[in-house]
Write a protein that binds this DNA or RNA. Structure first.
Lengths: 149, 149
DNA sequence: CAGGATCCCGCTAGATACTG
DNA sequence: CAGTATCTAGCGGGATCCTG
C-alpha cells in the first residue's frame, strides 16, 4: 500500500469533501437533507410517486409543480410551520423554486429544480426502501425485543 | 370513496405502505433512517467509502466489520451516546449485527446485514450527493441571501 | 390562499462521570 | 475497550392567533 496514488487521487486538486469529518460543510448539508420533511417534499414535487401503487401515473422523475395547499394535503400531518420552513430551506439551497402568481387569492407554486431533482433521486430511494422494508424491520424489532429477557 | 380502484391498484393485494400518510409505519421508519448518524454508520460499515477520493479501494458495497472504537474514530464528532444509541437501533431493526468476543478487553464488532446493505445503497447516494453538491448549495444560499434586501 | 409571528413543551443530543 | 447512567441546555416542532 506504499503506492497510494494507484487509482485514487486523480492528481488533480480534489476538493475532498468528507461527511465523516465534523467540520466539513457536507456534514451539515447531510444533516439538512437527511430530514423527513425535506425527503417527502422532494418526493412529492418529483411526481410519479404519489402512492405505493404508483407506476402507472405520470412519467417518473418529471417535476410536477405543486401549490402550497396541495403539498399541505399530500404530506399528511405536516404543520404549516414545518412545511413553510422546509420549503424555505429548500428554496434557499436552490433545490426548489417558488413562484408567486398575483391572482385574486395569491397563488404560490413550488417546483423542484434540476439540482433538487438529482437529490430527489437519492432520497426517493430511501423513501421507497422504507415503504418496502417496513415489515421486515418490524419483524426484526419484535424478534429483538423478544430476545431481550 | 365510491371506487378507489380507478387506475392504480394492480388488482393484487398491495400492502400499500405510504410514507406520505402520517399514521403509516413507513413514515416513522423514514424518520428513523433519515438520520445523520444512521447514514454515516451505514456508510462506514459498508466499506469502500472511507473518503472522498475512494473508488479504488476495497470492492464497493462489501460489508466491512468494524469495532466500536473504529467507528468512533471514523464518525468524527459523534458522542458515544449517539453512536451507541444509533448502533442499538440499527441492530434492533436488523440492519447491523453486534458481535461480542470475550477477549481480555472485550471486543465488539459491528457488521452490516444484507438488509442494511440494501439501505446503505440508498443512504450512501444521499451522502455522496451532499459531498458532491455542497459547493453548489453554498453558492445558491449566498445568492439567495444576497437577493434578500 | 399562503404564510408570518409567538408561545411553549418535549425530547434529543451533547458533556461529564462512572463501570464490567 | 465498550459501553451505561445522569443531567441539562437547546431547539425541533406542534398549536394557536393573526395578516396581505
Amino acid at each position: 500500500m506504499t503506492t497510494t496514488s494507484t487509482s485514487r487521487r486523480p492528481a488533480t486538486d480534489e476538493p475532498g469533501y468528507d461527511a465523516f469529518q465534523a467540520a466539513c460543510p457536507s456534514r451539515q448539508l447531510l444533516d439538512r437533507i437527511s430530514d423527513k420533511w425535506s425527503t417527502l417534499v422532494l418526493c412529492a414535487l418529483g411526481g410519479g410517486d404519489a402512492g405505493p401503487a404508483a407506476g402507472g401515473g405520470p412519467a417518473d422523475g418529471v417535476p410536477r409543480p405543486m401549490r402550497y395547499s396541495e403539498l399541505h394535503r399530500t404530506l399528511v400531518g405536516v404543520s404549516q410551520k414545518m412545511l413553510t420552513q422546509t420549503l424555505r430551506t429548500l428554496e434557499r439551497d436552490g433545490l426548489v423554486t417558488r413562484t408567486v402568481t398575483p391572482t385574486v387569492p395569491v397563488t404560490v407554486t413550488y417546483e423542484v429544480t434540476e439540482l433538487g431533482l438529482s437529490l430527489r433521486t437519492a432520497v426517493r430511494a430511501v423513501k421507497v426502501w422504507a415503504e418496502a422494508n417496513v415489515e421486515a424491520v418490524t419483524a426484526n424489532r419484535a424478534a429483538y425485543d423478544a430476545s431481550v429477557d
